[in-house]
Design a protein around this nucleic acid. Structure first.
Length: 586
DNA sequence: TAGAATCGCCAC
DNA sequence: AAACGTGGCGATTCTA
């Protein structure tokens, strides 16, 4: 690639004179260089804006935030289209340091992910994407160089090249997305970027004192259980030892050592997973202790001190990383730390609080995946269940057992619930049986009853599985594509292919809906002291100033419902929302 | 001895 | 390869 012409911009005049040409372009490449990865502790050094003629490199160290209003206008407008690779990163720095809400984005990173259609072998850094679509290699050596001092010619060339390459990359990716009918989904994704960037910037508040107290309690309980287990398991070991060394300790965190220790007590197991130990616990009470220990160990390791290390020194809050396309179905995933797998118990969730003078709004979709299924399947019975506004599982029980709502027992409801949750994942009779604690025969009969009551659902699920086998791919309501790399002739993969064929369109459409809602909500909160702070597949947590909590709650519900209505035709959608002091649904 | 693989379990 | 889909992640154990 030829070296682009560089226009280095360090004065107000230079900036003013470069804006009109940029504004006249239909698309520009955008990239930034920063002194680190965290906008709260790092600075924005360069902003590169590329046209086919030249790359403007704006040295942000030469400007105060108030001096760049024309730039703000350019980047906030929907035109020209701004091409960036992982625009979330640039959007965060531009928002935090210059107050810019980046708009009109085409993100080559997200585009590449969509075009890969779930192929997890593909890499999506700028270098591999350029290699795949432009057959070029990029020199990324300068990326981690020191961007805080005098800049070398080499650094400027690197900065310019990264922005310039985005223009041809955009052309290729746009063409590819068009060929694959992915432009609608791409726009949905691009519209969502800013809401996720702002959520990461806002971060979530964790009461560290309360969290430490929780850890301490867990640690105490853990110690006691561990001692009891060492006693019980060690006794078995000493009988085996010629030297009778009963002080010998086993590592309770080692599945292999635990399995061997159990064997010495006459409990033979292939592995020591929860479900297996659970089955034998009635016969061997020590297994309950072991499971209790596992639970406490899990909590200490995954939800202990390590979470506190993520509290940002600059903000005192946790700014997790959210991957916008985290799964082939389009779900967002969270890491560092994962805020999507905090135990759903009051001890842990109550530590995620609203700071003084603020409130949290906790809002989630009610049975969104079942509603999507009802809508896709045009199943009149299931639609009627939702139309009635009654508790879904009780209504399902009433419909499948042919009894009035008033006669539905807790056991009936439990069985119906097991089916409602299980079937969108393609569950079979054995799975249902163990879930609701029944025999396989009973489970089979229940499944028959269920599909009799919901014949449309049965048909749709069957057809979805067939489509997965025949076409090897599926699409969501927005058109998001997942090409299954599973072999229908492989006996193992055949079953898996059918299950994923049933689940992917539903889970994926839920993602479409959720992203619509996030984008729309973030816009609606503009100008209010309210920010999205967490996003958990079908649940949003918003933090706001307490006096506007009621107003914000209504906006949240409205935007979430409207997001769903964009993709669903017939089924009603409900969102449950609470104003709270902690991450609890009261 | 660092990274990969495995086991196991948390969320929706 | 647990019944049932999608992930992240920590501790142990294996391997080059």
């Amino acid at each position: 690639m030829d070296l682009p012409v560089i226009r280095l911009i360090r004065t107000a005049d230079e900036l003013a004179s470069s804006i009109p040409a940029l504004a006249a372009e239909p698309v520009i490449g955008l990239d930034t260089e920063t002194t680190g990865l965290d906008p709260h502790t790092s600075r924005l050094r360069l902003l590169q804006l590329a046209t086919p003629q030249e790359v403007c490199i704006i040295d942000c160290y030469s400007f105060e935030a108030g001096q760049v209003t024309q730039l703000v206008d350019l980047l906030t407008a929907t035109a020209p289209v701004k091409i960036a690779h992982n625009a979330k990163f640039d959007a965060k720095f531009l928002h935090h340091h210059l107050g810019i809400r980046l708009n009109g984005i085409f993100d080559t990173y997200l585009a590449s992910l969509l075009a890969s259609a779930g192929n997890e072998a593909d890499r999506h850094g700028l270098d591999p994407v350029v290699g795949r679509y432009l057959c070029q290699t990029l020199d990324k050596a300068a990326q981690l160089s020191d961007w805080s001092g005098e800049l070398s010619e080499y650094q400027l060339e690197y900065a310019a090249r990264d922005a310039a390459i985005l223009l041809p990359l955009y052309e290729k990716l746009k063409e590819r997305l068009d060929e694959m009918d992915l432009l609608v989904t791409a726009d949905l994704e691009f519209d969502c970027i800013l809401s996720i960037a702002r959520m990461e910037l806002a971060g979530v508040y964790l009461d560290d004192k309360m969290w430490r107290e929780q850890i301490e309690q867990t640690r105490k309980a853990h110690e006691i259980v561990a001692a009891e287990l060492q006693e019980a398991l060690g006794a078995g070991a000493s009988q085996m030892s010629l030297f009778g060394d009963s002080s010998e300790q086993i590592n309770l965190d080692s599945p292999a050592q635990v399995r061997d220790a159990l064997a010495r007590l006459g409990i033979e197991v292939d592995d020591t997973r929860e479900w297996r130990l659970q089955k034998l616990a009635r016969e061997h009470p020590i297994l309950d202790k072991l499971l209790e220990h596992r639970h406490l160990s899990k909590n200490l390791s995954s939800y202990g001190e390590s979470v506190l290390e993520y509290i940002n020194p600059a903000t005192g809050r946790i700014h997790a990383d959210f991957r916008q396309i985290g799964t082939p179905t389009g779900r967002i995933t969270s890491s560092s730390p994962s805020l999507q797998q905090i135990p759903h118990t009051i001890e842990y969730r109550s530590c995620f609080r609203s700071p003084a003078g603020r409130k949290l709004i906790v809002a989630d979709y009610s049975q969104i995946e079942m509603r999507i299924l009802a809508d896709f399947a045009h199943d009149e019975s299931l639609l009627a269940a939702f139309d009635s506004g009654q508790d879904l599982h009780r209504t399902t029980a009433s419909q499948m057992f042919g009894i009035p709502l008033g006669q539905v027992t807790p056991r009936h409801r439990e069985q119906a619930k097991g089916l409602n949750y299980g079937l969108v994942y393609g569950m079979g009779a054995e799975g249902l049986a163990s879930r609701i604690d029944s025999t396989v025969q009973e489970a089979e009969s229940l499944i028959d009853r269920y599909f009799n009551a919901y014949a449309g659902v049965a048909r749709w699920l069957h057809e979805a599985a067939e489509r997965a086998v025949n076409e090897g791919r599926s699409r969501t309501a927005s058109g998001r594509l997942w090409i299954f790399r599973l072999d229908p002739h492989d006996r193992q993969q055949y079953g898996s292919l059918k299950r994923v064929g049933k689940n992917a369109p539903i889970q994926g459409t839920a993602s479409d809906i959720f992203k619509r809602a996030m984008a729309s909500l973030d816009m609606a909160l503009l100008g209010l002291d309210a920010r999205i702070v967490n996003s958990i597949h079908d649940e949003l947590v918003i933090e706001c100033e307490e006096s506007i909590a009621q107003e914000v709650k209504e906006i949240v519900v409205d935007r979430m419902v409207r997001g769903a209505k964009e993709f669903l035709v017939r089924v009603p959608v409900t969102v449950e929302a609470m104003i709270s002091d902690a991450w609890l649904k009261k």
